[in-house]
Every structure is written in C-alpha cells, then in structure tokens.
C-alpha cells in the first residue's frame, strides 16, 4: 500500500539514475539531429525528379514505418556486428538504430513541410537564377522548418519516450538504470514509479511548451 513505499532508496540511487537519464537525453538529441538531417534528405529525394531516388526513399520510409521499433532495434543489434565484423555495444547500436529509424518519421514531417511552402517561392528562386540546392537551402527549407517546428518537437517527445525500448538490448538508459537500482535495493516498486514520474514530468513540460509555441507560431502566420 501507499504507506509502505520506502522513498529513502531514491536518494542514494539518484547519481545512478542521472547517468541513465543523461544517456536517454543524449540518445534523443543525437537521434533527433541525425534523424532530421537524414529525414530532410529523404523527403527531398521523395519529392525530387529522379525516379529511382524517389522509389528508394519511399521504400525505406514505408519499411521503417511498418515494423515495430523493437524489431528494428533487434535487427540493428544483430546485423551491425555482422557487417563490421566486431561487437559494437548496446549504446552505439542504439544511437545508430534510433537515427536511422527516426529519419523515416522525420522525413514524413519534412515532406509535409516542404509541400506547405507555396509553389511560387520555388519558381521565384529559380527565376532569380538560383540552383536547385540554393533554392532549397535558402528559400524552401527555412520556411518548411519553421512551419513544422511544433510537429518536429512533438515527434522528438515521442522519440524520447521510445528510447526506453533500448531496454531490449540492455543499453543503460533511465528505465534500465531504475530497473537495476530497483533490483540492487530490492525496491522495484519505488524505482519504477519514480522513473515514471520523471518521464511524465519531462514529457508533460515539453508538450506544454510545444502547445504554447504552436499558438505563437500560428498567430505570426
């Protein structure tokens, strides 16, 4: 019952949980940056003129989006060591997996973002004598990003929650740290609850900020 909760175990395990949280946060930030970069390229490939590029990009995105993330994590953990010929460790494997996986989801967002930019903008860019890359980098993408900031951030919150799935390959994120601490102190109930509270506090704060941002950006437009 509630009275039996022993909250005194939280304090000694805090440094340990902090290391876990730092890994979760790093994983989120790296997968976000890498995912948005690769995702933008994928989106450009899907919207571009080259048929084979479009086909490859859509196949990749659709494939990633129709498999459970857990299976993708297991796949990468199995296949990367086979390809490079040596074990790589759960943490690095997680970094690569999440970047590759999230790129598919970010690319769908960026595709919508690019399509939300008025056609005249692209034509104006070409009319000014800009090349494709210049038009993209200087005219289209800045506007696409701006329009999609709230959606990109919402996806990042989902990404942060999904990082807990690295549990399956034993990488030490926040949840795994709570799991281990719970076993060490023989207090799993307190530790699972505490990790849930941390996740909730972080995600709720972030999504409230995104909501406000959404209103702010909507007014400007």
């Amino acid at each position: 019952m509630l009275g039996q909760l022993d909250l005194s175990v939280l304090k000694p395990s805090l440094p340990f949980l902090w290391t876990g949280l730092k890994f979760s946060a790093n994983l989120t930030l790296i997968a976000m940056s890498g995912g948005i970069a690769i995702g933008t390229l994928l989106a450009m490939a899907r919207l571009g003129k080259s048929r084979p590029l479009t086909a490859v990009a859509s196949a990749y995105v659709n494939l990633m989006r129709s498999i459970p993330l857990l299976m993708v994590i297991l796949w990468f953990f199995l296949v990367i060591p086979l390809i490079i010929g040596k074990p790589i460790g759960a943490e690095y494997s997680a970094l690569i997996t999440f970047t590759a996986f999230e790129a598919a989801y970010y690319s769908e967002i960026m595709r919508a973002g690019i399509q939300s930019v008025a056609k005249g903008q692209v034509m104006a860019g070409y009319a000014l004598g800009m090349t494709y890359w210049q038009t993209m980098a200087l005219v289209v993408l800045p506007q696409a990003f701006r329009n999609m900031i709230p959606v990109l951030l919402t996806q990042t919150i989902i990404l942060f929650q999904d990082t807990s799935l690295v549990y399956a390959i034993g990488a030490k994120d926040l949840l795994k740290a709570a799991d281990i601490a719970g076993k060490n102190y023989n207090r799993p109930v307190e530790m699972y609850l505490f990790s849930a509270v941390i996740y909730f506090a972080l995600c709720y704060t972030l999504s409230s900020i995104v909501k406000r941002l959404q209103i702010k950006l909507a007014v400007v437009r």
């Binding site: 929650q161 109930v189 699972y192 609850l193 990790s195 996740y199 999504s207």
Partner: peptide, 16 residues
C-alpha cells in the same frame, strides 16, 4: 497515458 513511455506503463501495471 500519453506522457509515460509504453514500456514503463507495462512495468507499472505488472509490478506496481
């Protein structure tokens, strides 16, 4: 339910 990862929710229902 939206702000806690699904895996954490699984553990909450099972252990907590």
């Amino acid at each position: 339910f939206r702000n806690i990862p699904l895996l954490v929710q699984m553990f909450l229902w099972f252990f907590v």
